[in-house]
Design a protein around this nucleic acid. Structure first.
Lengths: 135, 135
DNA sequence: GGAAATTGGTACAAAATTAAATCACTTCAA
DNA sequence: TTGAAGTGATTTAATTTTGTACCAATTTCC
């Protein structure tokens, strides 16, 4: 067994993810959604504040501001000042936003699922478990 | 056992990688190297032509052009016309490029290794094997 | 051989992303 | 209270990244 090189594992993983993204991006775009916008939208329910989104997605706050603005303009999101803390903007996914998120994630699932299909169900579960430990 | 949702696995993985990247980026920058530049440089030996780099890294050709130009200006790379096909530019990592690549990948290994450390050696090997099947 | 189609790479302009500065609100210590 | 420090979010300006169009070399196919 060869020595385990983290950078090698990392690179495998990175190239895999990028390749999957660039494969689905055109399809996601047809939903009227940019790929990164989908990632943001998909996390809003769990993290309803821009600062939280920025932290969990590892993106700068101004970037989140831009995406949120676009998602709001597209009607996928609503924004309201948080009554408890007037600095915060609480985000709400609209019904149409929920619909487009589901479609986008389905596309992602299909694309990534095509790769995952190379693994047995047990291996898929194992992968998930390993990634959860790393997260 | 819960149903396996590819988008969920994907998202776990994506957030993990992004979080690791944003952690090491500042350190890599101290080497005089942008993170993406490191990724390019690290693949040059294996893929010595810009078009190949663009394909394996899933990035547009003009982006590769820009990085290659910067890496050349920094002395980490040399470029020569391929004798066999005058359209192609064969890339060569210089000694100083090799050195900086090693340092950069070491930083990445440390950062990602810190996460991987949560897994046993057997689990790490398993993860690598799973990712190789997916690649 | 030689036009037509393909491939490798780049220039330029436009779009996306981000760092830095800023504003508004909140918290905390005195 | 109050004012100093901290937090949430945005604006502005600069940088990074990319789409489009393009040129040069090669390959294909008649």
């Amino acid at each position: 067994m060869s020595k385990i090189d983290p950078a090698k594992i990392w690179s495998l993983n990175y190239n895999l993810l990028m390749s999957v993204i660039s494969g689905v991006s055109p399809d996601i775009a047809e939903l009227g959604l940019d790929t990164k916008e989908l990632f943001v939208l998909a996390q809003v329910e769990e993290h309803p504040y821009p600062a939280e989104l920025a932290a969990t997605l590892s993106m700068p706050k101004p970037t989140v501001t831009v995406y949120v603005k676009r998602l709001e303009a597209a009607g996928f999101l609503r924004r309201e000042i948080d009554a408890a803390d007037l600095r915060r903007h609480r985000l709400q996914v609209t019904p149409s936003g929920r619909k487009v998120t589901a479609r986008g994630l389905a596309l992602l699932s299909d694309a990534f699922g095509a790769r995952l299909g190379r693994l047995s169900a047990a291996e898929q579960a194992e992968l998930r478990s390993l990634l959860e430990k790393l997260s």
